[in-house]
Simulated scan of single mutants.
Amino acid sequence: MRWKRIELFDLINYVLIVLACICMLYPFINVAAVSLSSYTAFVANPMLIWPKDFTLGAYEEILSHPILWKSYLNTIIVTVSGVIIGAFLYLITAYPLSKSHLRGRRLFMLLIVFTMLFNGGLIPNFYLMRSLGLLDTLAALILPALFSGFSLILMKNFMESLPEELEEAARIDGASEPYILFRVVFPLSMPIVATLGLFAAVGYWNNFFNGVVYIRSVEKWPLMLFLREIIEGSKMMEISTGGNAAELGAGTVPTETLKYATLMIVMLPILCVYPFLQKYFVKGLMLGSVKG
């Protein structure tokens, strides 16, 4: 009788997991299907899960846009620079804070936690960037999101879980502290570094607000501002035609398929990177959250 209850329980779990996967995957599948379908097929069935009247017109239109590739390059520069510089800062900050003999350790941690609860706000940050001469530069997209107290605490807790015997053995062999950090601690900390790096990469890639506030030149737009431009242009086209696709020119791509194709182009890089770093997620977060 017991095995039947367990079997029923497992069946219910599988059903719930499958339903959850369908709910999470369907929006992505729908976006991909609409972006590859004709506008007539979209109007007939907006809930498409498979392309109908297959066409690449929307992608051809987006990929020929002169701002797309420049926006892509800007976003890649910001994301890669922010992740690398941020990882370096987390390492050199978390390593000394993970040592219980560090003087003023509690005070430093209190100040770090304080930054998690309070910040200067939009206007002070804007004036700070202006006083530093960083308005309308890519640095203005990197610096505000470069350092996070939460991420620092995760890395510090992870380093505290590492065996101290490894560092002591390196010191006996005459290794300096920088050598121990980058040749001993850093390789062992790759799970948390990869986890925080992916968090930072997704944050930089999807960052829209900083671009709106700090960037003025079109050639310095990040990818999210380009996406906004496409969506706003689509809205204006809908207004001008009254939502009637028949009034569009023969060579004009309908607004809905154009928006969906843009979403796919913006999402694909992160979707390609995520599977390679997914294995670090659970290990990095679990080990980084054991100690307080």
Rank of each mutant, 00 (worst) to 15 (best):
Y72M: 13
Y39M: 14
I239W: 13
T79M: 07
Y204I: 06
L263A: 11
R183N: 10
L188K: 04
V218C: 13
K283L: 09
L287P: 09
P222W: 07
I6E: 15
A140K: 00
T255N: 11
L248D: 09
S38E: 12
M264R: 15
L196N: 02
N210S: 09
F108L: 10
P51E: 04
M286F: 07
L56V: 10
V253E: 12
L111A: 05
G249D: 08
E256A: 13
I77P: 00
I230M: 10
I215Q: 06
S240E: 08
Y26G: 12
N206Q: 03
R171V: 13
L19H: 08
V184P: 02
F42P: 09
W221E: 12
T55H: 06
G242W: 03
R106S: 14
I85R: 00
L188E: 03
P191L: 00
L132G: 02
G284M: 02
R2G: 14
A261S: 10
M159K: 01
S131E: 10
G233C: 01
V290G: 01
K291M: 13
F126I: 09
V78G: 02
N119T: 00
G86C: 05
M24R: 10
L16V: 08
G57W: 03
A200Q: 12
M267N: 07
Y95C: 03
S71Y: 03
M236S: 15
M286H: 12
L110D: 14
Y280S: 13
I62L: 08
N210Y: 12
K220T: 11
L166S: 04
L225N: 03
